[in-house]
Write a protein that binds this DNA or RNA. Structure first.
Lengths: 182, 182
DNA sequence: GAACTATACGGAGACACTCTCCGTTTTGCA
DNA sequence: TGCAAAACGGAGAGTGTCTCCGTATAGTTC
């Protein structure tokens, strides 16, 4: 890639990240991103064929955070319920970090053709590791995609309604209790 | 209201209901509704100032179904868990009946200014009746809005990803177990 | 049943948004 | 320095929501 192209691409992603984070996916127009990055719409669309693929690039650094968080959660001591709840809380917090991301990523969970497919694999893998670690403490037959969808659903509600952290926590507590074998 | 206006209004709602149910909220344009109802865009927008208010009118008959369903659920016998799960399943099914409705109604739960506010009150009331009926079988401190949000979140995920009924059932089972006092 | 007025109709179009085409400019290499 | 390939960016096509306003119609009054 030519130096000017690389510069423009980097600037677009940086500017778009700031806009998306604050205003959410829908509320940011591609023209707005192009203007803020001081490029023409044509340039923007050559780098990112659709608005979703731009969003995907914005979320790129994010998969790392998930893996770091699950590593941390796996090393914690304590009862299974506490460890699970701690992980689900971190997980939901990361999903709501960018407005609109939770619903989008969760909707893409079963769709390998989605632009967010790589993010989904990361999330599913993280939940799978958690399942294996907690093992017999969980209800039998629980799958990573179920956990991903449940927490994704909670995160999407929190995100859409802009709920405070304690509302999220009380919903996650219900989910965690439901996931623990009784 | 003049007779021709009433005729047009009725036809618009009828046509819009059919379109929304199949294609979902986003995929139906107001022009499309106007053409199908054989009125001009101006007429459509005089009756329904926004697309959301048209959707609200389409869902009008729906509140009755919720109240009927909760009445039925309250008369059932059996263990609390079964009764709760039966109600949550019905509730989720009604939310996913119209594509896109679950996320929209759930997002409006805490917003009295939303066009869906009346629907939200119906849902919250139904869950409140269920809470009172199950009483001590539920975890302490659970509120109608929590249940509404949890099930709304599950329904939105099911709707977005077009999941089969058994995927919905396994998620609702987790939620129901989490809601039952342990 | 004719005239009149308030009400409703409907199409042209303003505005916003996503995305494309193509003439112009810039870059990096020979 | 010259040149080909790559990238730029703006005009505009296509689609969507929603508005304005001249025209048509319903319902009332005589």
């Amino acid at each position: 890639m030519r130096a000017d192209a690389q510069r423009n691409r980097d600037r677009i992603v940086e500017v778009a990240r700031a806009l998306f984070r604050v205003k959410g996916f829908e509320a940011v127009s591609m023209d707005e991103v192009a203007k803020a990055a001081e490029v023409g719409p044509g340039t923007l669309y050559r780098h990112f064929a659709t608005k979703e693929s731009l969003y995907d690039a914005v979320l790129e650094a994010w998969a790392d955070k998930v893996n770091t968080a699950v590593d941390r959660a796996l090393t914690l001591d304590g009862p299974a319920r506490e460890r699970l709840l701690s992980w689900l809380t971190d997980y939901a917090a990361m999903l709501t970090e960018h407005k609109g991301a939770a619903a989008r990523i969760t909707a893409a969970l079963g769709d390998p053709g989605s632009p967010f497919a790589a993010k989904c694999r990361t999330y599913l893998g993280a939940n799978q590791r958690m399942i294996e670690a907690l093992d017999s403490a969980l209800r039998p037959g629980v799958e990573a995609i179920q956990i991903s969808r449940l927490v994704g659903g909670v995160a999407a509600v929190v995100d859409n309604s802009e709920l405070p952290a304690d509302a999220a926590a009380s919903m996650l507590a219900v989910v965690a209790d439901g996931l623990i074998a009784s």
